[in-house]
Write a protein that binds this DNA or RNA. Sequence first.
DNA 1: CTTGACCTTGACGTTGATGTCAAGGTTTAT
DNA 2: ATAAACCTTGACATCAACGTCAAGGTCAAG
Lengths: 126, 126
Amino acid sequence: MRIGELARRAGVSTRALRYYEQQGLITARRSSNGYREYGEADLRLVSEIRSLLAVGFTLDDARPFVDCLRAGHDSGGSCPESVAVYQRKLAEIDDEIRTLLTRRAEVAAQLTTACPGCVLRKVGES
Amino acid sequence: MRIGELARRAGVSTRALRYYEQQGLITARRSSNGYREYGEADLRLVSEIRSLLAVGFTLDDARPFVDCLRAGHDSGGSCPESVAVYQRKLAEIDDEIRTLLTRRAEVAAQLTTACPGCVLRKVGES
DNA sequence: CTTGACCTTGACGTTGATGTCAAGGTTTAT
DNA sequence: ATAAACCTTGACATCAACGTCAAGGTCAAG
């Protein structure tokens, strides 16, 4: 299939696909006229990339997953490099959550000072 | 005082101060030679801006606070516009926290699938 | 008089993942 | 043969808050 069809099937823009190629995440055979030609496996790779981006991974984070799939594994997350990225990402997310909770408290405290009784209820509090 | 001294006292770069001026957050008298001249009140404004930026506000968010101080109030957060920003920000932070918690769960689930027993403990869990 | 520490405006670089044009070649259908 | 729908590479635009040069004016000390 050509880039337009892959883009439609994967739910991304052709621009994004060319960018992934430029970043070395996907590759494409070329037809005699120079058009990119993709197979079903490429759809799989792009889907993996999209689902990772959707949960906050960068394209660089996605690389080990793509490599894992291309190495023949049935899951992009089943290689040690991918597991390492998962763990690093979890730690990053936890850091961000902690930072946000701290900020939340600081802002709420400021608001309370400026306007007692104005603070909304905290996430998860009834 | 001139821009260098204000920058040192406020703990920011001169570039940042010129940027704040360009964004309409602070203003400066000019000496006969064209140099910016600031007073103590300006230090107060810059401090307010920095503390707001530190908790994740944008310069645009900070504008009502600066206006409030310039209007003569002793606290940047004591004007209704500032309170509105506080509340909007709290809502935004809560949204981000919810998003991150969701992502955290998704990533942890993926990791568990790929590597059972690899998941670190969640924030706040013992 | 000259070094050095100030100050000025202007403008490009940073970061990530694209969007959007430009200017053109290819293919399919009518 | 010509429009419509593809495709190509290249390159600038986006967002925020500055960092970092460039090229030059100002001013006090030695």
